[in-house]
C-alpha cells in the first residue's frame, strides 16, 4: 500500500491577514504561513495506516517557497519520503494549478491512496483532493474521518450533518479528503525535525505548468458584520459580575 499525503501551507489566522484595502489584494509575503490543520489530520491517518498495515507514506507539497520545514516535520513524524513539486509556483498559486501539477505527478508515479485535508481556509477555487481526483477521474470522497485497509479494499467513513455517517468500501486508486484523523495529530519535536533536515532529503521534481481554468478575482475585502457584540470591559471578576447581572435580568439564573 503506497499512500501519498498532500500538504499545503496557509496564512496563520492567529495573526492579522495582510490586505491592501485600496486595491483589494492579499499581501502574501507579509503573512506567516503554517501547515493547513486538516492536512495534519490526513498525515496522521496515513501514519496510523502505516503502523497498522505497513503502508509506505510519501508526503508531497507544491513548492510555494516555504514548504521544506513542513516536509521535514512530516518526515520527523514518520513519513517515509518527501516530495516537492518545483516550477512556476508561489504563495498566490491557485489550487487548480497546484492540483494539476499533483495530478500530473500521480500519472507518472503509482500510489494506491491519496489523503489530504478535506479543505483549507483559502480554497476559493475549490478543494485540492477533489480537484485532483476529478482531473484523474479517480473515485474520491470528502469529509472522511476513518480509513482502514481490509484486504484489497479501502474502507472509509464519511460524515454528514447531524452526526450521521456512512461507511464505504472502494478499490485503489482512491482520493480521500480527511476531516479528522482517528487520533489527534502527533507532534514532532524541533530537535527531531532538525535531525531530519541533516539526515534526510526532500526529492525535488520539476512539475509541468499546464494552463488551467483560473478565476478572475476582482478583490478581497473584509466583511461588514451585520452586528457586533457589545463588549464587556474589565478584569475577569468585573466581567463575571456584569454577565451575572445580564443573566439575572433575563431570568436565566435565579436572583
Amino acid at each position: 500500500m503506497r499512500i501519498l499525503v498532500l500538504s499545503k501551507s496557509v496564512p496563520d489566522l492567529v495573526e492579522e491577514l495582510a490586505l491592501d484595502e485600496d486595491n483589494g489584494e492579499l499581501l502574501h509575503d507579509d503573512m506567516t504561513y503554517v501547515p493547513s490543520e486538516w492536512d495534519d489530520h490526513a498525515l496522521e491517518e496515513a501514519l496510523l495506516l502505516k503502523e497498522e498495515v505497513g503502508a509506505e507514506v510519501t508526503v508531497l507539497a507544491v513548492d510555494t517557497g516555504d514548504v521544506d520545514n513542513m516536509l521535514f516535520t512530516a518526515l520527523a513524524k514518520g513519513a517515509d519520503h518527501a516530495v516537492k513539486l518545483t516550477g512556476d509556483f508561489d504563495l498566490a498559486t491557485s489550487n487548480r494549478k497546484r492540483a494539476q501539477a499533483i495530478a500530473n505527478y500521480l500519472r507518472d508515479n503509482t500510489f494506491d491512496l491519496v489523503l489530504s485535508g478535506v479543505q483549507a481556509i483559502d480554497d476559493i477555487d475549490g478543494q485540492i483532493p477533489a480537484i485532483v481526483a476529478g482531473l484523474l477521474e479517480w473515485p474520491h470522497a470528502s469529509v472522511v474521518t476513518e480509513v482502514s485497509i481490509q484486504g484489497e479494499q479501502i474502507h472509509f467513513r464519511q460524515e454528514y450533518g447531524g452526526g450521521l455517517q456512512a461507511e464505504f468500501s472502494a478499490q485503489a486508486p482512491l482520493v480521500l479528503g480527511i476531516q479528522a484523523a482517528r487520533k489527534p495529530p502527533r507532534y514532532a519535536s524541533i530537535a527531531k525535525v532538525r535531525q531530519m533536515m541533516k539526515s534526510s532529503t526532500v526529492d525535488e521534481i520539476d512539475a509541468s505548468a499546464d494552463t488551467v481554468p483560473e478565476l478572475e478575482i476582482r478583490r478581497f475585502f473584509k466583511p461588514v458584520a451585520a452586528g457586533h457584540a457589545e463588549m464587556i470591559e474589565g478584569d475577569p471578576e468585573e466581567v463575571a459580575d456584569r454577565i451575572i447581572t445580564i443573566l439575572k435580568e433575563r431570568k436565566l439564573v435565579r436572583g
Binding site: P11, L13, L17, L19, G24, L26, I121, D122, I124, L215, E216, I217, R218, R219, F220, F221, K222, P223
Partner: peptide, 9 residues
C-alpha cells in the same frame, strides 16, 4: 479564511 475575508470573483 474562516469568514475573515470575502473574495469577489
Amino acid at each position: 479564511f474562516a469568514g475573515k475575508l470575502l473574495a469577489e470573483v
